[in-house]
Design a protein around this nucleic acid. Sequence first.
DNA 1: TTGGCGAAAATGTGATCACAAATTAGGGGC
DNA 2: GCCCCTAATTTGTGATCACATTTTCGCCAA
Lengths: 240, 240
Amino acid sequence: MEHGKPAGIASLVSPPSLLSQRGGMREHVDQAVRSALLAGRFIPGKAVTLRGLAQELGVSPMPVREVIQRLAAEHALVVLSNGRVQVPKMTAARFDEVLKARLLLEPELAAMALENKAEIDTKALEKIDLEIDASLGTGDAEGYMMLNYAFHFRIYEASRSTILLPLVESLWLQFAPFMRTVYGRVGTAHLVDWHKEAIKAIRAGNVESLRESMASDIREGMWLLGRSSFPPEEDKQDAF
Amino acid sequence: MEHGKPAGIASLVSPPSLLSQRGGMREHVDQAVRSALLAGRFIPGKAVTLRGLAQELGVSPMPVREVIQRLAAEHALVVLSNGRVQVPKMTAARFDEVLKARLLLEPELAAMALENKAEIDTKALEKIDLEIDASLGTGDAEGYMMLNYAFHFRIYEASRSTILLPLVESLWLQFAPFMRTVYGRVGTAHLVDWHKEAIKAIRAGNVESLRESMASDIREGMWLLGRSSFPPEEDKQDAF
DNA sequence: TTGGCGAAAATGTGATCACAAATTAGGGGC
DNA sequence: GCCCCTAATTTGTGATCACATTTTCGCCAA
């Protein structure tokens, strides 16, 4: 398995705004790795090393250790039995379950968000959706993924949820890296979304319509991924 | 706010079986704290200190730090803005969401488990249910909670789930401490469960009946908690 | 070229230290 | 008694170190 720098994680390093607070370094590393995961800059199966990440982010290995444990708890990273850390590989079973979980939780979250309709900036959503169309046109997979994330979570955050929302975030962290690899193979051209229908449902205050728009968006977006082939289990994810 | 030792966390210290492996200390601490949380030996709002836990478990603060980050990522612990760590307090909003999430996920998990019916040891479930009745009779709240956890997850684990199951575990870690405080106030006498109906549904292979049994069990078990009063928001969970 | 053996490098883990920030305790003045 | 200010203690954070294990690389023989 070839190694190599995890491809510009440090690219989106936030200026030292709150880095001098308590846990500032950890927060910095956490956001950097999370963004990288969600944007698909980490390839499934890729090894993640403590000192590597630390050097790349310009911090000591210490905050990186804590962040890795944190992300491992959310199953965004896996710690093999030999201690090595890597981005988990997708399997057919895992994929089916992620789809099921998303369909259970995300429409519900959207419905909850609609109860605080005033907090949903549909104008901003339209802007994001336009940028999504643009990124699809240029084939910018990474940009598409971040924008798609922004679109969904701009809605979900209006739910003021403290339980369901973190669960869904964990799900996104888990399938995003795989998503990226598929887009790298088949491109983003055939992608269609139900964002415009969702915005319409929000404006109309139609909960049921919003639920169905989100469900359709998830189902069709994931369908493209599901038709793709899963990595062969050359070596087991972890040999206990 | 009074302090005090977190009450016998080290009680269930496993013998040094696999403690010399990689990450052995961390695994040890992780299981100890998780068990304590699920059994309700941590009271919501209680401060959890790094050095305190470390000394109690006979390890250096290092593995404790990683475990705390791990549990904080699952929202089983919260890291305040000043760095202090505590067991999160329950609020009405959080409680409603936990109930909603449980009703969405756990019946589904039980249904998935029934697809591997052979892996569900109904004989063991009956034994656990008997012990639950016994613990209710003696008012052993801590024992009841661990047995109730065992009952549910013995079923769920048959689902071979790698996505939904961890999400549900995160939920249990979040409401267990609160559950314990309520039992401490109102006792466990009025507790009724649908475990016998669930076992019957499993034996009959009746998926829909199992779903409803689990939903009823969750609803009625949580109803007792919901009627209880939530801690007044004397001080905010976290002052940013 | 290929397979395997041994040295060298890399990696995670646990421990310890120094430091800053926050909490707590104590004492003095009102 | 009550409040406020200061000192002592506690606590989390980041850094560094030593070590065992693992992986990787280089070399030699078949």
